[in-house]
Design a binder for these strands. Structure first.
Length: 312
DNA sequence: AAAGACGGCAACCGCCTTCAG
DNA sequence: TCTGAAGGCGGTTGCCGTCTT
């Protein structure tokens, strides 16, 4: 015996979501919280599969999502992480607290991959010996260590950018999101507001004051307590963006603790003169070595070619 | 100005893991 | 303990807007 079926295949609507459907879904989540997606179609009358509802929420309607306008820092972080983790987009996106795995994946496939190929091609023309025959075992071990060192250094670099810079949108690349409308006086600063894609922001505004319920024992991280940021962000001194990041990190079914989100809050608290937030284990791992410069050990390292030729 | 090519991205598909019954 | 659905995730598709000819 298993669970009852989530939804029958017949009569399920496909294709783009309408604003009305979005509104229904947002209202449901506002009332019940994210999760138990199989109940959404039955409860709301939406003619959508539960999976489709979850996808729509996690990728577009969830508060705090930033669309398009990837910064150079984000570019670098994605490239580094992709080199280290491969196409594990969910893991990569966990280091970009306001990005979704789908967004990162699309951005990689449509922008970064091409950019990387061009840069690699240019590098091969400058130094054809770069892509040399595979190394022997000793070299391979050295390579692996270099990969790890590079990734750590990259993460340090990317995550140590001043908070204000992180929150700024470059506006020179990626999707051309329309400029947000004028904001009321009590709204967050423009730099923060720009972080939201227009339509998503509109819907997200409906969720003001809403906080995700405490994750149940459902899949994901049953033994993992919510990150510190979730509770601390409710202090009122933190920005809307921080709260969004916190709500993301504390959302149910989130497997990896978003380190970047924690760093976000640490930096913001430090900037505001607040108390020091303890370093997590991962942060400590990232930041150990005292930020010492590490040089690539091999010319033949493909990762080196990717990273350094990419202009990083 | 029109038509075809191209690129970006939202959404679907299918596989895998987790977990409820 | 077993079964099968839910949820998560990465790959892929197809629509739509933009660009080029």
């Amino acid at each position: 015996m298993g669970r009852p079926p989530c939804c029958d295949k017949e009569g399920v609507k496909k294709g783009p979501w309408t604003p009305e459907e979005d509104l229904v879904l947002v209202s449901y989540v506002q009332e019940h919280g994210p999760g138990n997606w199989r109940a959404v179609p039955a409860t709301t009358g939406l003619m959508r599969c539960s999976k489709s509802c979850r996808l729509r929420w996690t990728n577009y309607l969830r508060p705090g999502i930033r669309r398009g306008g990837f910064s150079d820092q984000e570019d670098r972080l994605i490239v580094h992480l992709q080199a280290l983790l491969g196409n594990r987009w969910a893991a990569i996106a966990s280091y970009l607290p306001d990005r979704t795995d789908n967004d990162v994946k699309n951005y990689w496939n449509t922008h970064l991959k091409k950019k990387l190929l061009v840069q690699q091609h240019q590098h091969q023309q400058r130094a054809p010996s770069t892509l040399s025959p595979p190394p022997n075992k000793g070299q391979w071990e050295l390579r692996l260590q270099t990969d790890i060192d590079l990734a750590r250094r990259a993460l340090r670099d990317a995550l140590s950018v001043p908070l204000a810079e992180k929150m700024m949108i470059s506006g020179t690349r990626g999707a051309t999101a329309p400029a947000p409308p004028p904001l009321p006086a009590e709204s967050p600063p423009p730099a923060l507001v720009q972080a939201y894609e227009l339509t998503t922001r509109d819907v997200s505004c409906m969720l003001d004051g809403w906080a995700p319920p405490t994750p149940g024992k459902k899949s994901g991280s049953p033994a993992t307590p919510p990150p510190p940021v979730a509770a601390e962000s409710a202090s009122g001194s933190t920005s809307e963006l921080t709260e969004c990041s916190a709500s993301i990190s504390s959302a149910p079914n989130r497997r990896a603790a978003p380190v970047a989100a924690q760093l976000f809050v640490r930096e913001e608290k430090a900037a505001a003169g607040g108390e020091e937030v303890p370093l997590s284990e991962i942060e400590s791992w990232l930041l150990e070595d005292g930020g010492g410069e590490q040089k690539p050990a091999h010319d033949g390292l493909l990762l080196d070619a990717a990273l350094y030729n990419f202009g990083f």
